[in-house]
Design a binder for these strands. Structure first.
Lengths: 230, 230
DNA sequence: CGACCATTTGATATGGATCAAGCGATGTGG
DNA sequence: CCACATCGCTTGATCCATATCAAATGGTCG
């Protein structure tokens, strides 16, 4: 039911080419009262725009695979990345009717797409759905508050904090695979790519991390990273 | 009903001394379904702590008069101010059961205090209350997102942005009265007091503003301020 | 293999921090 | 009511972390 409506919608853009149609999957059989299980899968190619700032917020999204960045751009072109969303994360939820950020696929990805109006309607009758929506917004709020705390720190603290944050999202793993470029990281941390790069090199030299490939980081000494996190 | 419960609660601290008891006001007569009208007034003295980070979030607050700052402190003492709340603003709303920031009175103030559990219970049955709570959290989210955008700007842009933000909250007024110290402003903007002071002086020299008293700012050229807001 | 793009590394510049002193308003005690 | 202490703010001099400018290196894909 949801899936049929969504995959045919023209306002969803630039699906990655070589992916089998979501139509081949069975449609959701009956209304369910948990947000987690609803929606239709949708592919987006690397760097594809998922939605733009100030556009009507018709959908919300949950990542199945790949990664997404949200961002805003200032008049003069400076870009600030709001957050990196990974599999399992929900993004694009708005209380007002327009998106406050833009969203792009960092890598090819699959995303569950859910019609916002359906969820909102559901929330009007189902208390637990309303509660989930509120909690999602609150989760986002806490994330952004943490981001503010990151932005007042030194470059080393920001990078260390970023690595720990990414590591915390891959529980158990001491090695992290970064789906995003140095430019993305820099724009998330409010630094330049050069500073990010130099800081990573410094962390490597101090034996806190190992960088076997530019997008692969091994946390060699979490305690040291935590100590320099401010 | 609410008022009786709340003013006698011991966990609310440091009410300003010479204020007539809220008990003298008539209690709210019957349950109402709009958050705006509920609660009991409570005085706080300048610099009094209203609640601390990580404390149980038993109440939410709405400012009647005065001003409040919320903040977090890093290990090494750096303080980041989350927001300045002015009359009419609601603060202290949490979805989880602890406060994520601390809150202090910037000046002597009166605050409506509302038991969180009562509101949450109400939200379980009243859709419009649930919606209001969600919207308050979303309003806060947008604020914090704007704050992030502020923190990536230059000192001049931050100060100009701050002045415009404060001015927008006193609609119509071209002159703003700042309830907070330079240190508070600096900790909000992620700058030092010296930089804030110098920047204000520079703005005054460029005829964008006038500073007849240190806590009184006249916006002389809003367009210029907006232009340098980034 | 060669072109291109991402990343690292190097050299220099600079905005804001830090250190330090002066100034003005406010309040207190004599 | 005035002298003086205190506190918040401004101004000045210098320093330093990070930005900027520039070039080299490495990895990927046709």
């Amino acid at each position: 039911m949801f899936s049929e409506t969504l995959v045919s919608d023209r306002s969803l853009r630039q699906p990655a080419a070589p992916v089998k149609s979501p139509r081949s999957r069975p449609a959701v059989q009956a209304p369910v009262n948990t947000i987690e299980l609803m929606g239709a899968p949708m592919p987006f190619a690397r760097n594809a725009e998922i939605y733009g700032e100030n556009e009507p917020a018709e959908y919300l999204y949950k990542i199945v695979s790949g990664a997404v960045r949200t961002y805003k751009v200032l008049n003069d072109g400076r870009r600030q990345i709001g957050f990196f969303y990974l599999p399992g994360d929900v993004f694009g939820l708005e209380v007002g009717d327009t998106h406050t950020f833009s969203a792009e696929a960092i890598a090819d990805c699959k995303v569950m797409v859910i019609k916002r109006s359906a969820i909102i309607a559901l929330a009007a009758t189902q208390t637990d759905v309303a509660r989930q929506l509120w909690e999602m917004t609150a989760t986002e709020l806490r994330r952004v508050q943490d981001h503010v705390m990151l932005l007042i720190k030194t470059a080393q603290e920001r990078v260390a904090g970023f690595l720990l944050e990414m590591a915390a999202r891959t529980p158990g793993a001491t090695e992290i695979e970064l789906p995003m470029s140095r430019q993305d990281i820099a724009d998330y941390l409010g630094l330049t790519i050069e500073t990010v790069s130099r800081t990573l090199t410094a962390l490597e030299n101090s034996a806190a991390i190992d960088v076997p490939a530019s997008r692969r980081i091994v946390l060699r000494n979490r305690a040291a990273l935590a100590r320099m996190n401010g």
